[in-house]
Nucleic acid binder design. Structure first.
Lengths: 145, 145
DNA sequence: TTTAATTAAGACAAAATGGTCTGATTTAAG
DNA sequence: CTTAAATCAGACCATTTTGTCTTAATTAAA
């Protein structure tokens, strides 16, 4: 699998927030956990990371929950993934070397550079807004069947 | 990191075999382990998997070791990766769902299909032959600095 | 002010991955 | 036949990732 469980849970949770009607304020983590079948406490920890990074806002107490920190047009898939997997997830060396660049390329550097650029472009352009639209209009799923 | 340690070790070991002079027969795993700084017993297990899958041939006893099972022109990076990470590593669902296709797409399916195709094409075209050539002529490295 | 509903925090457990060690088996060569 | 060099096999340990549990802190509303 390309992404860690933490990352998949984070992505699905954020997409879930993205498809909520705009009038909704805070969404309880319990609801997301149940709707998406993600372990509650595990999800809580993951979402805390996203909150710390400024992607979502949380509110304690009754009527509390979480909420996207920005409009969906200003959030994209790539930054969510990077916030969980690490900044260099898509920019690092394919052979795992810490120092790998044009001056000191690993054996697969050239080819990987091109692929990385593709991935980053496509995921970086994918804003939550258009995604949420397509999820709603086309009935795309956030759940295992 | 995109790939597991097992996969990175496998890739580097196979590339190491690819750049050996053609007259060399069996290369001892101990040598690869030392040259590439990969734990010996761990590497042995990984290479046994590659042998079981038919990518390399092994020979026990004195003067034994391992050897590529096919000419470098018939081996590519993609199949090595898939043999370790699993057949569907590049073809599976980005959200980790087991059933995800055009008839029942997940929320990210469309976009991911395009990226997957890019990756598979680029890695599938990368045969060990050309790679080994470039590694030798351009001094590309298989080692952390 | 009490209560119920919520996130936050941190200890702990389970599972997966990464790695080590010992000994058995095989093989070439002296 | 013996020995040395190698892979093979499997038990074991360490680390990381994933997940559970309990309790504390916070907040809205009765």
């Amino acid at each position: 699998m390309i992404f860690s469980k933490r990352c998949l849970h984070a992505l699905r949770a954020v997409l879930y927030l993205g498809v909520q009607p705009p009038e909704r304020e805070f969404v309880p983590i319990r609801e997301i956990s149940q709707k998406l079948d993600i372990p509650f406490h595990f999800l809580t920890k993951i979402l805390k990371e996203l909150a710390d990074q400024g992607f979502i806002i949380s509110s304690r107490g009754a009527a509390g929950g979480i909420q996207l920190a920005k409009p969906t047009s200003e959030l994209n898939v790539k930054e969510i993934i990077e916030s969980i997997e690490g900044e260099d997830y898509f920019s690092g060396c394919i052979l795992g070397f810490s120092k790998c660049d044009n001056d000191n390329p690993c054996a697969l550097h050239d080819r990987w550079v091109a692929i990385k650029a593709e991935i980053q472009m496509m995921l970086g352009e994918e804003h939550l807004e258009s995604l949420a639209d397509r999820i709603k209009t086309q009935g795309l799923r956030l759940l295992e069947i």
